[in-house]
Design a protein around this nucleic acid. Structure first.
Length: 113
DNA sequence: GAGTTGACTAGCT
DNA sequence: AAGCTAGCCAACT
């Protein structure tokens, strides 16, 4: 079993632990999983999820608190924003089409799980 | 099998 | 305060 498969599994496992109404970052999940230098793969693992997955991928955003775009003209971003707002997370629109969450208020950053 | 890409970050300018 | 650079490493071309 490769380390990466382990990280992918832990990414999903940790994502499920994020409480509704909170968000965390790619880098933090990578750290909790024990792979502090692999934040990119966390994103890669999440983008591979099917749309009807039970994993709350919408609660994972980047370290700046922004919803990362994926070159689909913002469709995925809009869907993610909807899901977060439905849980009570405030998502602020930024000029240019970006969406941002205040990590000081909605962030979930446990030391370990 | 080498080069490019990316749902990232931390640090410097 | 906002933007750029370097570092990172698996997946894809």
């Amino acid at each position: 079993m490769s380390d990466i498969a382990d990280l992918t599994a832990k990414t999903y496992e940790i994502a499920r632990l994020i409480p509704p109404g909170h968000v965390t970052t790619y880098g933090h999940i990578a750290r909790l999983a024990g792979y502090p230098n692999h934040p990119r793969h966390v994103g890669n693992a999440l983008k591979a999820l099917p749309e009807d997955s039970t994993i709350p991928w919408q609660r994972v955003i980047n370290a700046k608190g922004q919803i990362s775009p994926r070159g689909d003209a913002g469709l995925g971003v809009a869907r993610q924003k909807d899901l977060l707002e439905a849980e009570g997370v405030q998502v602020n629109s930024v000029m240019g089409g970006g969406e941002v969450v205040d990590l000081r208020r909605w962030g979930w950053f446990p030391e370990h799980v």
